[in-house]
Write a protein that binds this DNA or RNA. Structure first.
Length: 895
DNA sequence: ACTTTGCATGGCG
DNA sequence: CCGCCATGCAAAG
């Protein structure tokens, strides 16, 4: 496979202690050797001065691997980059369209993982926004129980669902497990009983991919510049197991996942680099942390220092029950972060039991959490523990334990005042995090009510986005009350906290739950990525950087964005930055300062900026015309801005461009006048361009013939075609799955085996073809960005109603004769199928809709008003965005 | 009599 | 079957 890998450093067996680890180097290393890349053992390659210098200066491959294979050129700057060994593993990033980019270039352009794991569903994605959306909405179930969601790097985490066979991916961030591995060296194993644990078992999670980074890291670092066959996945899978049982010693080492949270003040390069390497970020499902470490070998010590925290002797054996996994939202994290220099490490959380919240003032701590994250105590009396709440107030609790069945029961005593101050009760959740580098413990909370509302809302309509009609949105300056992570507390299904006397609400179990929304009935309740985008606002007092990625503008925040009520921010031509938003009650549009952060349930009464319009009876300032203008497609939007529609382009879009466009342009019989409020769906607002809204009410409107090519029909047909194509693709993918996994690994590690093409080819040739076709059809696209090599062929032409995972779907804007024919064909098939199978189970995600017929809203793309200009984005509400989608946040763009 | 403390019990995963 | 932990409960204050 790759001879390049058998490089010097690739010699997997450590050389004699005195020789330079680089086997291409004949020198003996001096007594004081220098560290190179990290090895599987957690140690670092011991290099002689010369090699170490080369390594540190990034010249290692140039020096020693010059003749090895695996050299490629950066697509952006053309620089040669070695892509075939461990040393260079982080020096490049794989581009979606193929090719690689050196980190310098990647860092400039990207804040997202460029070497994603490419889960099957992503294999065909080329447009970044789509990938984002994909990431945001895929694997929802995997989000369950997942850990903190780093808003900057979140995209990577959605890959945690990758099958175990995909352990090959490189660590999303370099995970500093060196310390853990040090322990590995002293390797103390856990009791067998522990090792046997399934599912929640640390090792199990490792194996199934959720702890991939460590595993990958292990692999990567353990293979010292090359991969030997025995080092490949199999060995990777073994390693984690070991490490997962490594016991902690008394050092300051921390195990577990790094929190995928980029310190705001960290050099962007670092953040980006970590981002670019990310991939399957395990959602940090495990609250334990391993600090990110991008410099091989650079900071294991730092890590330890940073986390100066005594460890219990049994800490290493911890794996936490999912119910304790921290599910902080980025918002919560952000709020906790008092000091921008601090990094928050979510540790764990616990739902308060009746006794916890009771007057006794004892909070029972999950044993493993206590042992993992709190100081180790040997006396039952324990220690006073200083804990800071999210407001910065400090509390001192007694952290102690009781002997219990040969074990311990850990409690925090004296929590009553704190609990009361937070107004918590049984069912609410307290969260524990640590501020780095101070190591300060921070206690936060999440009200069950907020969670309940949130979750209900989530599951009813928005998938976690506290938008209109949602429960109270957490006041950004106050406590975080909203859990956007998509989980539902057990109580929320019942009648609120009232922890039943019955122990452990047996019906629902003690685990947090997320109502499944992947059924047809719930689809209409989902929020789209696009909509979610529309809810994101820069954090207070933050001016986002604008990045252009693949032709799309993104807002990049140094801090996590916050959620707000959708609003429209018109162009800033007067110097007065304002936004328009709609009252929840009277639906009148009100003008507010653009900087105002609006709660999801904003009403006129909240209008403190314009007292005379702080009640619903006050007339609307905007005329219908003005509103229309505001809502018009060319109106600037707040969020994700796809390639702009120039008036000239309208022609090109005629007939087949996105539904949204058509609807907005008022073209076609079914379209609605923009600005005209629709009542077709509660979530649809004036200007909503989804298929539901652009159609006349049930039974009304013209009949559609089979040959009809109106927007609606075309859309329906297109969607049907999508469905069919998807089915085919699915089938194909299934077969190719195994191969692809292997290939992905190989491709990523050994690009010289022409991974780009191969992965596509082996995955789905028809899809590739379609992509090709899409490229060709892109001729009418005047998007200036399309010349960018790494740009998706669909940019600017992505249909709102397409499925995120359907990049193979042609944009209707790129009309052609064959396209029309295809639509016709699929449309016919659709109609046929409809005739013969009218009540059958239908795929909710690509449910064909009958033109002009009575329909329910089943997951159509209902673009949020504020997001209308993003109608070129491939958004599908079948893939709701979760607000824990912090990635989206970081990717938001201003209009 | 009431509260606090430390431990025991047993349901549950 | 075993460990966790929510809660019961008795002793101590």
């Amino acid at each position: 496979m790759s001879s390049a890998l058998t490089t010097a450093s690739s010699s997997s067996s450590p050389l004699s202690s005195k020789s330079c680890y680089n086997s291409d180097c004949k020198e003996l290393r001096p007594d004081r050797s220098r560290k190179g890349w990290r090895l599987r053992t957690g140690d670092f390659a011991e290099l002689c001065d010369r090699c170490a210098s080369a390594y540190e200066e990034g010249r290692f491959c140039e020096t020693f691997h010059l003749n090895a294979s695996g050299w490629r050129c950066c697509e952006s700057c053309g620089k040669r980059v070695h892509c075939g060994c461990i040393v260079s593993a982080h020096a490049f990033t794989l581009l979606d369209p193929g090719g690689i980019e050196c980190m310098t270039c990647a860092g400039k352009n990207v804040i997202l993982p460029l070497n994603p794991a490419w889960p099957p569903s992503l294999l065909f994605h080329s447009a970044l926004p789509d990938r984002l959306k994909e990431l945001s909405v895929k694997n929802w179930t995997q989000l369950a129980g997942s850990g903190p969601v780093p808003w900057r790097q979140a995209p990577s985490m959605f890959n945690s669902s990758l099958p175990s066979g995909e352990l090959h991916h490189r660590a999303p961030y370099e995970v500093d497990i060196s310390a853990a591995l040090n322990k590995l060296n002293t390797s103390e194993r856990l009791p067998v009983s522990l090792e046997k644990r399934k599912n929640e078992d640390f090792s199990q999670r490792f194996l199934n991919g959720s702890l991939k980074p460590c595993g990958q890291d292990l692999c990567e670092n353990g293979t010292a510049g090359g991969i030997k066959s025995e080092d490949k996945p199999s060995s990777c899978s073994n390693m984690p197991k070991q490490s997962s049982f490594v016991k902690e010693d008394s050092s300051t080492m921390q195990y577990g996942l790094n929190i995928p949270y980029a310190p705001p003040n960290e050099p962007s390069a670092r953040g980006r680099i970590s981002g670019t390497h990310l991939r399957p970020t395990p959602l940090s499902s495990l609250p334990k942390q391993i600090h990110t470490n991008l410099q091989n070998g650079a900071d294991s010590n730092e890590t330890q220092l940073r986390n100066g925290r005594p460890r219990g002797e049994s800490r290493g054996k911890n794996y936490l029950l999912p119910r304790y996994w921290p599910r902080f939202t980025d918002q919560e994290l952000q709020q906790i972060s008092v000091d921008s220099n601090s990094v928050i490490t979510p540790l764990f959380e616990k739902m308060l039991s009746a006794s916890d919240a009771g007057r006794i003032g004892r909070l029972v701590l999950p044993k493993k959490c206590a042992e993992a994250y709190f100081p180790s105590i040997s006396q039952p009396e324990g220690l006073p523990l200083k804990v800071q709440d999210a407001k910065g107030k400090e509390w001192i609790f007694q952290f102690r334990f009781w002997p219990n069945n040969n074990s311990r029961m850990y409690v925090l005593e004296g929590v009553t005042p704190c609990i009361q101050s937070m107004q918590l009760q049984a069912g609410d959740t307290v969260t524990f995090s640590r501020l780095e580098p101070e190591g300060k413990l921070v206690m936060g909370f999440r009200k069950a009510s907020a969670t309940a509302d949130q979750e209900n809302e989530t599951n009813k309509t928005k998938n976690g986005a506290p938008v209109q009609g949602d429960a109270e949105l957490a006041d950004p300056t106050s406590w975080t009350k909203v859990d956007k992570s998509g989980y539902i507390a057990k109580e929320v299904l019942g009648a609120k906290p009232s922890i039943s006397r019955k122990r452990k609400n047996s019906t629902l179990g003690s685990k947090s739950k997320r109502l499944r929304i992947d059924n047809e009935d719930m689809i209409e309740l989902k929020i789209t990525w696009e909509e979610a985008q529309g809810l994101l606002r820069p954090p207070p007092n933050q001016v986002p950087n604008i990045l252009v990625i693949e032709g799309f503008e993104f807002e990049e925040y140094e801090e996590a964005p916050v959620l707000g009520k959708p609003s429209i921010i018109p162009p800033d031509n007067t110097g007065e930055r304002i936004q328009w938003t709609q009252c929840e009650d009277c639906l009148k549009w009100r003008k507010l300062p653009a900087s105002a952060l609006l709660p999801s349930k904003w009403t006129c009464s909240d209008n403190s900026w314009e007292p005379e319009r702080s009640f619903c009876s006050a007339p609307q300032e905007l005329s219908t015309e003005q509103l229309e203008e505001l809502l018009s497609p060319v109106a600037p939007v707040k969020k994700m801005k796809a390639a702009k529609l120039e008036p000239d382009n309208v022609e090109a879009l005629e007939g087949l461009d996105t539904l949204a466009n058509l609807a907005i342009l008022g073209e076609g019989e079914a379209s609605q006048t923009p600005g005209q409020a629709t009542t077709k769906h509660p979530r649809h607002r004036p200007g909503c361009s989804c298929i539901v809204c652009i159609q006349p009410p049930s039974g009304k409107g013209p009949k559609h013939k089979q040959t009809c090519t109106c927007n609606v029909c075309l859309t329906v047909k297109r969607r049907f075609r999508t469905l069919m194509l998807r089915r085919e693709k699915k089938q194909f993918e299934k077969e190719a799955e195994t191969t692809r996994q292997r290939n992905q690994f190989l491709d990523e590690m050994f690009p010289d085996r022409s991974m780009d093409d191969e992965s596509l080819t082996c995955s789905n040739t028809s899809t590739s073809k379609l992509i090709e076709e899409g490229k060709m059809n892109d001729g009418s696209d005047e998007d200036p960005n399309r010349n960018k090599p790494s740009t998706s062929p669909f940019k600017g032409q992505i249909d709102l109603n397409m499925q995120p995972e359907r990049e193979d779907e042609l944009s209707p804007g790129s009309d052609s004769g064959s396209m029309m024919k295809m639509l016709q064909d699929t449309g016919d098939r659709f109609l046929e199928q409809q005739r013969s199978n009218s009540g059958g189970t239908r795929s909710s995600s690509s449910d064909p809709l009958e033109p002009g017929g009575e329909r329910e809203h089943k997951g159509e793309s209902s673009s949020n008003v504020i997001d209308r200009s993003s109608n070129n984005l491939d958004v599908d509400k079948d893939h709701p965005a979760t607000l824990s989608l912090n990635p989206s946040a970081s990717m938001s763009a201003t209009g």
